[in-house]
Simulated scan of single mutants.
Amino acid sequence: MKHWVGRPVIMYCGEKPYTILRGVLRKWDAAAGVAVIGHQEIAVPFHDIVFIKALAPKERALAPVLHSVGFCLRERLQFDNAIYFKSAVTVWRGDQLVAYNTTIISHTKGSVTLQGGQHVPKGAHLFVVRSLRG
């Protein structure tokens, strides 16, 4: 089974319903009788492993989620990237929330057009973007 070492795998362990572990097989230790999987290096005894198969490419990636940390848009390139990546943007005017979780459609030197067609001046508003992770 050493041919699985270093490859992304899915490991079925225990009895039905199986415990499913996904990740890169880090080590196959015949002396200790365990297989080590994942970045957390979980050691699984050989007698608990029912079967192992290669992880399909679509199963490897995690679904994209929003970062919990945002940053303020100030430069032209940042606005361009927010449009290109369809990033979630929150718009503030002082302490007042103007738009939540919207996207920017276009921008000029002095204004921004939001998803609903609303035009917002750049100088009077703060644009906070949260990018997608994954």
Rank of each mutant, 00 (worst) to 15 (best):
V65W: 02
V24E: 09
C72V: 11
Q40I: 07
V69M: 13
T19G: 12
R93L: 09
K86L: 15
L25Q: 05
H107G: 08
F85V: 09
V69E: 15
K53S: 06
W4A: 13
T19Y: 14
Q78P: 11
K58M: 07
I20D: 00
T103N: 10
W92R: 04
K16R: 09
G70Y: 06
R7S: 04
R26V: 10
S68D: 06
E41A: 12
F46P: 00
K27R: 13
P45Y: 04
A54V: 11
Y18I: 02
A43W: 15
A82R: 03
Q78N: 01
G38C: 14
W28Q: 03
R76N: 14
F79E: 04
P64C: 02
I20L: 04
Q40S: 14
P45I: 02
V5H: 01
N101S: 07
K58Q: 08
G70K: 06
V24F: 05
A82F: 01
P45H: 05
R7D: 06
Y84W: 15
S68W: 07
I10H: 15
F51A: 10
P64V: 03
D95C: 13
M11H: 02
C13Q: 14
P57H: 04
R60S: 15
I52S: 03
L66A: 05
I49H: 00
D29A: 01
N81Q: 10
D95L: 13
G23D: 03
H107C: 03
E15T: 05
S68I: 04
K58T: 15
A56F: 09
A56S: 13
L21R: 06
V36Q: 03
V36M: 05
R93N: 13
A56G: 10
K58G: 08
H107Y: 04
Y12T: 07
S68R: 09
I104D: 01
P45F: 01
A35M: 10
H39D: 14
W4I: 11
L97Y: 07
H107T: 12
N101R: 08
G14S: 02
R93P: 13
A35L: 12
W4V: 14
R60C: 09
V9A: 06
P8F: 01
H47A: 07
V98E: 02
N81C: 14
H67W: 06
G70Q: 04
K58N: 10
I104R: 02
N81E: 06
I42T: 07
D48R: 12
T108K: 10
T103I: 06
R26N: 03
V91S: 01
I105C: 01
I83W: 02
P57N: 03
Y18G: 01
A56H: 10
V91G: 02
H39I: 09
Y100S: 11
